[in-house]
């Protein structure tokens, strides 16, 4: 009898320890990045582009990478939405009676979601070679769009599935076409669409492997789609490899900026998901 209680106690201790390690690793990572990056943070960092050559130049900031990242992540999310909303609607409205097709499509998007970004990057590179596009903002946006489509489709799909069937049936019974039903549903799930946008943007802004081949790198803020664009994750990666201390420091500051952006996005989407599920009709 004692032994059983003792085992229960032991396991509980282990569980608490494991939980502390798992959640603690979050604080450890963010703490490390803050500790290292805070020292190098200054106003120039987010308002100036690097000067005097990227690997050796000691002055300036990383405005080029911040703007480049916003362009790539923003462009990919918008393009991804244009493609994903019709797909999610199609799966839920038009294929509703053919559950096998709908579930097969969901499976395919789940699998696409699992494909690593380096494969999307390599494939994006193949597309660019095929069409003769050079490493540019456009190339980066194409590759990252491929990466975020599965995220957008699956999130939107989950959200649309929470809309009660009665709403659809009532709208249809009033003589509305399926497209008109779709418009009603879209209005209903608006907070869910914001969540999907945030998730997709967060993934897009943090990903390296997909932009490595496709977006190139530049010290300037891109002014057209055909110019190479710097991105934050790549800026971190390249600058850490530099032997100049100031440039490395800029890398740590970039890491801090990226972490802050992503944390804000994640927290916002958490809040939105909470709010959204509060209004859900059971």
């Amino acid at each position: 009898m004692k032994k059983r209680k003792f085992e229960e106690w032991c396991v509980k201790v282990f569980m608490v320890l494991a939980t502390i390690i798992v959640t603690g690793s979050f604080f450890l990572i963010v703490g490390t990045v803050f500790y290292k990056g805070f020292h190098y943070m200054n106003w120039d960092m987010i308002t100036k582009t690097p000067s005097g050559g990227f690997y050796i130049g000691k002055a300036g900031g990383i405005l080029n990478a911040i703007i480049g990242s916003l362009y790539v992540a923003g462009g990919a999310t918008i393009l991804g939405l244009v493609i994903s909303i019709p797909v999610a609607l199609y799966i839920n409205l038009y294929l509703k009676s053919k559950l096998i097709y709908a579930n097969t499509l969901r499976l395919v998007f789940d699998v696409l979601f699992g494909i690593p970004s380096i494969v999307y990057g390599a494939f994006g590179f193949l597309i660019m070679v095929y069409f003769g596009i050079r490493a540019s903002l456009l190339g980066g946006i194409i590759a990252v769009t491929l990466l975020v489509i599965p995220i957008l489709v699956r999130t939107l799909d989950e959200v649309i599935r929470t809309v009660p069937n009665e709403l659809r049936d009532a709208t249809l019974s009033l003589g509305a076409t399926r497209w008109e039903v779709a418009k009603v549903i879209l209005r209903q799930v608006r907070p869910g669409i914001f969540t999907a946008i945030l998730l997709s943007f967060g993934r897009a802004i943090g990903d390296v492997a997909s932009v490595l081949f496709t977006a190139g790198f530049s010290d300037n803020v891109p002014t057209s789609l055909h110019e190479p664009a710097a991105t934050l994750p790549l800026a971190i990666f390249f600058q850490l490899g530099s032997s100049v201390e100031e440039v490395q420091g800029r890398g740590y500051a970039s890491a801090l900026i990226l972490t802050i952006i992503v944390l804000i996005i994640t927290v916002l989407s958490e809040i939105l998901i909470k709010r959204f599920s509060k209004h859900k009709i059971q």
Binding site: S25, G206, V208, I236, Y252, T266
Partner: peptide, 14 residues
């Protein structure tokens, strides 16, 4: 969830 949102490159820096 917050941990899953951290970009790969930050894990690398860490």
């Amino acid at each position: 969830n917050l941990l899953s949102g951290i970009p790969p490159v930050i894990f690398g820096v860490w």
